[in-house]
Design a protein around this nucleic acid. Structure first.
Lengths: 233, 233
DNA sequence: TTTCTTTTTGAACGCCGTTCACTTATTGAA
DNA sequence: TTCAATAAGTGAACGGCGTTCAAAAAGAAA
């Protein structure tokens, strides 16, 4: 029964091909400006066939968002592991996480924004339930990793899980907002500072806010160019 | 020539009526789910007439966003004036500003998000240029007021205009992200904390981040329920 | 080859933002 | 009051797009 398995593999491959084609078009034209004709042409198939693999246009970007979230989660885990080995300062780690977040959010942010919308009923989203469930669980997993990091790092004021979770939400919100502000306004052209400087500043200020006071001076002394090189994808 | 003036007033009134109708429908169904038929029915006019007053569906929400921004700017100014009279602590003021921001962003956030999108070319927006220009200038005005507040308050570390502006962007981004996180995930149902607690916590942590160290202990001592009552609109 | 199943197609459908030919109302002058 | 001229208002028609579907093509099993 090798035929059935081969067909299944092919089906998965085709699904991935369509998704990649969609990603390319979405990225160049934006989600709302992209027609399924565009996607079909890019994927070299007919429009109708798309619907054998995805329930709707929105289902496609939900799948993309899931892929993005999984990638970020992997990045996050790698960053945290590395920092544990190298005993980096919490500030150093946060900066690298922020950078990973920006990297991740730039291509996939649109999908996440639209998913946030979907909760508020912006569009009756017809997305495969499992996709949303998995997306949620991956995201919660990332948040949990961050929480553990906060709890385990001696620099932070947060004393317990609850307080750490609050800090995580704070961090997440900050990253979300700062990225939106930075990227939304024409990739920082509104600002005088570069992306790296901006991240650096943000993290430094936040660190003072959430670190124990005995670490404040240390935080304020650490300067720019703390970035680890991260593998380009 | 009283006729011309009356007509102009009527025209403006009709334009406002349509806008209010649109706002009601947008708020209950979301922007993308709202059809112009819906708006027309709510405003008790025909679809075609809408186009005598607005260039497009998107032009309508740009106008709404402008109204929202102007309201926030007024609120901000009132809050700052009041705090000057009462010599409130910077933390106290920031909390009230954050609350005003949340109040403002809840109904109008969708429009702002979509406008941010428009910069990234999500949709070829056809909006009256003047609306966008005014929106931008009102927003920059608010940011400038915040900057002045930062510079004038002795509690902050920021020494000059440039540093203060950076803090303002930080604050703005934080408010943006935290609101999106809080409101986007079902109005905070994801969190254990209430909106007020969340704002309070966020501001407190941020304050530590941007205040001079000699004010840290004071910041950490100030507790919840710092909110001024604000007039309900 | 033949039959059955799966994959693939693209024309057709319905919805919606937008336009336009047309009707109705309003105005100022005769 | 009547009459052109202009403005306000209507809703059917248009074009584009997401989605569906009947039918064709391809592939598997016999």
């Amino acid at each position: 029964m090798g035929v059935k398995e081969r067909k299944e593999r092919e089906k998965l491959q085709r699904s991935q091909d369509i998704l990649e084609a969609a990603r390319r078009v979405f990225e160049s034209k934006g989600f709302l400006n992209t027609t399924l004709q565009d996607v079909a042409k890019e994927a070299e198939i007919s429009v109708g066939l798309i619907y054998r693999y995805f329930q709707s246009k929105e289902d496609m970007f939900a799948s993309l968002a899931l892929k993005g979230a999984e990638q970020f989660d992997k990045d996050l885990e790698a960053t945290l592991k590395k920092s544990l080995r190298k005993k980096s300062s919490a500030q150093h780690v946060l900066i690298n996480i922020a950078k990973a977040f920006f990297d991740f959010y730039s291509p996939y942010g649109e999908y996440f924004d639209m998913l946030l919308y979907s909760y508020k009923g912006l569009k009756q989203v017809q997305i495969q339930g499992s996709t949303l469930t998995r997306l949620m669980s991956v995201t919660l997993g990332s948040l949990d990793k961050l929480k553990t990091f906060i709890v385990d790092s001696p620099e932070f004021r947060a004393k317990n899980d609850d307080e750490a979770l609050q800090v995580v939400f704070l961090l997440w919100g900050i990253l979300l907002g700062c990225h939106k502000l930075f990227d939304g306004s024409g990739r920082g052209h509104l600002f005088a500072f570069s992306r790296e400087d901006f991240i650096d500043q943000v993290v430094q200020q936040i660190m003072v806010g959430i670190a124990k006071s005995e670490h404040h001076s240390q935080v304020l002394e650490e300067k720019n160019s703390l970035f680890d090189e991260r593998p380009t994808l």
